[in-house]
Nucleic acid binder design. Structure first.
Length: 579
RNA sequence: GCACCCGUAGCUCAGCUGGAUAGAGCACUGCCCUCCGGAGGCAGGGGUCAGAGGUUCGAAUCCUCUCGGGUGCGCCA
């Protein structure tokens, strides 16, 4: 059930009745304050401005044309022309009853499913995954889960960096190691980070090594069998490492979703030729460049976008263009969403412009870069280890779990050691993910163990705790999820909670549209808060509660528990029966 | 130099297509355990929404400028 959409439709009908065009913005939103009812219609004031009439008078007219019988118990005009709508408790109760019986928790059917490529995680296989990969991985995964729950067809693409310049360096170093008789698995690739550092040091310091590295890149990219074999060993090991991290993180990315840079290799030369033939790209200082006048500065200097290096090498720009063609034409998707660092914003703007010019992106394919900010340490500078190194993601997650273990041990009484370990895993990983997902995607955020693991306020453990509390009531009542009873909303807390339950779909839509899981985090936190209030004010199993009231409240509790579990699941966070 | 992002309570952050008296959490102060799980609830103090103009019935939100912070800008990804 999408109440907002229902009100938008009703309001639109009323607008048309009073002679306004169908396209008029209705301005329907959830009310900002309880005194203003449940929803407010703000469109009358803007419409009055266009018509140059009195907003209050227009609101009166609209009120006459607006048919909210069976939906609203009160519709009134306030201030300069707000229309405040208070919903009938019976209407909310009826919708809740439907939601309780629905496997989609009341979310309406997706009548126009889209096909969407979601490009996320994309670690560089030359190195171990570090904290910089966390955001792309979990934000992308949350959006993917939301889209799939809604019913869109999602094609996950893990655009792994396996083809860049550093690989020449790594292969050269690996070859030397092997020549020294070093065992591949146990030494050379045991720690990707160390290996990369050694190779980089040689690249910077050792005479001749840099040239050798560059030769290896060319050999690799031109299909030299020996190079490819070494490269493959490297890739396999690195992929295995990434997949371990995905398992730890509870992320849905699997082997089948890997679509690395090298996959586009054969498409690069033809695309470059085509751009050149069409005159979109021109030679400049030895390189092949597209000059973008759309992104010119004040003096009219166009923004340059290099698609082929001097000497013929391709760049990530070329690969991204190829990805456009593959996704928009071969996969024929409606939408492409790419989760990367905000620093690449200009790059993706350029890619889209060039791809559109060249027809690599069909008009009907939307191309969306979903940027995110940097994770900072508590000093406000990019998050590093004490010694200034990058923080490995696997180690960060292990620390989260071990920190959670301490707290869970201290707070839990009737759990076995195994159960405690399991709860700690879910709480620790959940805490890291929620702390990140709950922040606005586009801004930088400060990573703090203390605030995410204090388990108070807007944190994963708070939500997990709310869930266990509901489940505890249901256990005690001896009801399961199939329990059915008529709903009645007596107390204001019951109505507020019920309304929030029904607003899940509105939140879900916004999360998918803007690729912003933080809205779902906010929603779940508000839902939990309202449940806690309901729980305090509306006794369920206490003596003297009418059976019909108790049953209705049990229904409400079941819905909340399902919603919490589903909502957290969409964020990739597990719940547990006890903690 | 040019472009993009950001500046909201002591701290961390919300604030949706412009809406009514700018909201949470942490920290601080004071209440609530004859309880259905206190990892909780209730109440309170705390703000020049960086600053200045502008657009209008109405601006944290849109436009311009200034200050402050970050990032990017021809052969890395």
């Amino acid at each position: 059930m999408n109440i907002k959409q229902l009100l938008v439709d009703k309001t639109k009908a009323a607008f048309v009745k009073v002679g306004l065009p169908d396209s008029t913005n209705t301005g329907v939103t959830q009310s900002t304050k309880v005194e203003f009812g449940d929803y407010q219609i703000n469109g009358a004031m803007a419409a009055a401005k266009l018509l140059k009439t009195n907003p209050r008078a227009l609101a009166e007219q609209l009120l006459g044309a607006l048919d909210l019988t069976d939906i609203a118990s009160k519709v009134e005009i306030a201030g300069p022309g707000f229309i405040n709508v208070t919903l009938k408790p019976e209407f909310i109760a009826a919708q809740l009853t439907q939601a309780a019986a629905s496997p989609r928790l009341g979310v309406s059917e997706n009548t126009a499913p889209q096909t969407v490529v979601v490009d996320y995680s994309a670690p560089n296989l030359a190195k171990e995954m570090h904290v910089g990969h966390l955001r792309s991985t979990i934000i992308g995964d949350a959006v993917v889960r939301a889209l799939e729950f809604w019913g869109d067809k999602v094609i996950r693409q893990n655009h792994m960096g396996d083809w860049g310049t550093q690989f020449g360096m790594l292969i050269a170093h690996l070859e030397d190691k092997l020549a020294q008789g070093v065992d591949l698995e146990s030494v050379a690739l045991a720690d990707l980070e160390d290996f990369y550092r050694e190779a980089k040091k040689r690249f910077d310091d050792e005479a001749g090594f840099a040239d050798k590295s560059r030769d290896y890149v060319v050999k690799l990219q031109s299909g030299d069998a020996h190079c490819q074999k070494l490269w493959q060993l490297f890739i396999d090991t690195s992929v295995k490492h990434s997949e371990e991290v995905y398992r730890k993180l509870n992320v849905t990315l699997g082997h089948e979703h890997i679509k690395p840079e090298s996959a586009y290799n054969d498409m690069l030369a033809p695309i470059v030729d085509e751009l050149k033939a069409k005159g979109i790209a021109v030679e400049d200082q030895g390189a092949l460049v597209v000059f973008l006048h759309e992104l010119a500065d004040k003096e009219g200097n166009p923004s340059p976008f290099i698609i082929q290096k001097t000497g013929g090498g391709f760049l990530y720009a070329t690969t991204d263009l190829a990805a456009c063609q593959y996704r928009s034409h071969e996969l024929a998707v409606d939408r492409i969403v790419i989760f990367t660092d905000a620093r690449q914003a200009l790059h993706f703007k350029q890619v889209e412009l060039v791809a559109r010019k060249a027809g690599l992106l069909r008009e009907q394919t939307s191309y969306e870069h979903a940027p995110f900010g940097t994770m900072m340490g508590e000093d406000g500078k990019p998050f590093k280890t004490r010694t200034g190194g990058t923080v490995k993601l696997a180690e960060l997650l292990d620390e989260a779990v071990s920190r959670a273990l301490e707290t869970v041990k201290a707070k839990s009484s009737d759990l076995t050691d195994d159960e405690i370990a399991e709860v700690a895993r879910k709480v620790g990983i959940g805490a890291v993910k929620f702390a990140d997902l709950s922040k606005n995607r586009t801004s930088d955020y400060i990573f703090s163990w203390d605030s995410m693991l204090s388990f108070e306020g807007a944190t994963a453990p708070y939500l997990q705790y709310a869930y266990t509390r509901v489940r505890s009531i249901l256990r005690r009542a001896g009801v399961d999820d199939s329990f059915q009873a008529p709903m009645q909303l007596l107390e204001s807390q019951e109505k507020q909670l019920g309304l929030k339950v029904l607003q899940f779909e509105e939140t879900l839509q916004q999360v998918m549209k803007d690729a912003q899981p933080n809205l779902l985090c906010n929603y779940l936190y508000e839902l939990s808060g309202l449940f806690m209030g309901f729980y305090e004010a509306c006794p369920i199993l206490k003596d003297g509660i009418e059976p019909s009231v108790r049953d209705s409240r049990l229904m409400q509790s079941i819905l909340v528990s399902k919603l919490l579990a589903k909502g957290l699941d969409l964020l990739g966070i597990d719940v547990m029966e006890k903690m």
